[in-house]
């Protein structure tokens, strides 16, 4: 069965780069994309998409932002089991802490380099295929690379 990833991000470039890197790592992955929290929630609730194995969530979005979406999804009996990785420009420890408090699986600051995007998608696909159970710890280390 193909693995499915939902990316919630209003930034078309970021989503495109991520999708390209992801499909390069694993062409069989199904990639869904929503522009903001509301669209993502609607797609899930109205079954426009299948339940993803992982959600990548931006924070700063017009409409419903990432924090609001994260709170709602973690209260929803059908979807709260989906691991959510907060994927944001912010590289502050405070943001990573909030993400953890709200029940996110991990926090990754958006990389500046395509190689790093590829590294992230590599780890993700390995995790989804059961070959990288340490993803959570890996995310934590990533967040600490930018201590400020």
């Amino acid at each position: 069965m193909s693995k499915k990833i939902l990316m919630v991000d209003d930034d078309a470039d970021d989503a495109q780069i991520f999708e390209e890197a992801l499909l390069e790592m694993d062409p069989a992955v199904i990639f869904y994309r929503a522009w903001d929290g509301q669209e993502a929630l609607d797609s899930l609730e109205q079954k426009k998409i299948e339940v993803p194995h992982l959600i990548f969530l931006d924070i700063n979005m017009p409409g419903m932002n990432g924090w609001e979406f994260l709170k709602l999804i973690k209260k929803n009996a059908f979807f709260k089991h989906i691991p959510v990785i907060v994927y944001s420009t912010a590289s502050l420890q405070r943001e990573a802490d909030i993400a953890e408090d709200l029940g996110a699986f991990g926090f990754l600051s958006k990389p500046h380099d395509f190689k790093e995007v590829k590294l992230i998608t590599k780890k993700i696909t390995e995790y989804l295929n059961g070959n990288f159970p340490e993803l959570k710890e890996w995310c934590r280390e990533w967040a600490f690379r930018n201590p400020l």
């Binding site: 470039d13 780069i17 420009t89 958006k110 990389p111 500046h112 380099d113 395509f114 190689k115 995007v117």
Partner: peptide, 17 residues
């Protein structure tokens, strides 16, 4: 300002790749 610069960097590395 960080946002557009991150893009420049990402796409420059994308181009390199």
């Amino acid at each position: 300002l960080k946002e557009p610069i991150r893009k420049i960097k990402t796409f420059a590395s994308r181009l390199q790749d």
